[in-house]
Design a protein around this nucleic acid. Sequence first.
DNA 1: CAAACAAATGACTGATAGTCAGAAAGTGAC
DNA 2: GTCACTTTCTGACTATCAGTCATTTGTTTG
Lengths: 225, 225
Amino acid sequence: MGTEERKAREKERRRKQIIDAAEKIIFSKGLEQSTMDGIAEEAELSKGTLYLYFKNKTELYLAITERGSSMLNARFSKVFTSAHDHTGIELIRLIGETYLTFVRENPNYFKAFMYYESLSDVKELEKSEFAQSCEENRREALNFIIRALQIGMQDGTVDDSYDPKELAVVIWSSTRGITTVSHMKGVGHHFEVLDDMEIPVDALFENFLKLVGTGIATEEARKSR
Amino acid sequence: MGTEERKAREKERRRKQIIDAAEKIIFSKGLEQSTMDGIAEEAELSKGTLYLYFKNKTELYLAITERGSSMLNARFSKVFTSAHDHTGIELIRLIGETYLTFVRENPNYFKAFMYYESLSDVKELEKSEFAQSCEENRREALNFIIRALQIGMQDGTVDDSYDPKELAVVIWSSTRGITTVSHMKGVGHHFEVLDDMEIPVDALFENFLKLVGTGIATEEARKSR
DNA sequence: CAAACAAATGACTGATAGTCAGAAAGTGAC
DNA sequence: GTCACTTTCTGACTATCAGTCATTTGTTTG
């Protein structure tokens, strides 16, 4: 009998329903301004039920974060599956573009990422399945970059004097910095400097790609531009 | 009569006294776990008094953030005043090192920076003198980088095909990414990947510098390494 | 010294995260 | 169909804490 299965499925559906409601509320008002009562109402459930599915408010927000991070990874994955004839350095560029596009299209998920990274109650996080999954996604994302770099070192478009793992982390981190800034610019007040200087996000990203591109290119690749 | 002056001075002292207490409490327990009552007790004042000096809890934390950002800028400033015989690219390296060292020595201030950047209630921030000052500091920090780049373009250590302003923002942002990651590694749970891969923060930073160094170097500078 | 002003207090209020005893719904055996 | 049992859900309740404000305490000045 598939009762067990069905139960599990229904539990999943409830979970999704709650996350959906939470997203709707939190994405529109921000985490602080959102109440569990409000989310419960949106989900057409009582507050108590929310706590049957999520340990607390943070955990619920982490579920949203996890959803975002999985969406992002799915896009990274697509870069590899849908584009076979690219050089390593092109793949790196594509990954960067994918990231930036994601942040532009989903500023709220990125905000969730930022919140997640600002948490530091280690014990809380260690226990959370969602946080675990976020870490797993991060690991996977890094592997995409490592793969791209290795491809580049094979096809001669990436300087192989770097350790691919170390370089991957560097690229990942610095890209994260760029996306953070471009996110903040969208969100207002922050980084008025960019407006003062009249620097559009695109120019920022292009310069970053030029910098990274030049920085990791092989001698030959640099010359042939 | 210097009564007015003395009053102003005393007001400043109270302010400082409150920020000191807030720092002590918040740095030890984290923002969420800290209460205004607790801070008031530490400051040997009543809660009401806190609100005479700071509009709300966030504003008080912003004051701490501002303090941190000023400390950081003071260090940047020192790079320029205490080291005259450096090339542009060396200055860039020194600024990066200064930043990273600051984050290592003051993870709590950096955490405050991260919190600040996660805020997005624009109206709140626009009104805050502390947020304004943080933005001013950011502007100043960027100017240090721009100056270093211009020096480098003059002395031939930095590729002058970049726009110095744009490049400065790129360097600032990506460095921010690196420091964020190195901060997170210190704080635990986050970025276990780094441990798995056995990548120390120093290696990360060295690679980043190599990347940026190569990326912005002039043809000649690259050859002469 | 007393009136006027300024600074500080802490009891109070409102909001809300999180709990829990009990209601409602579902399940399955007879 | 109904009864005993399990699972899911509910919403009133509690504890906590940010922020307020009427009152008190301290200071200045004519």
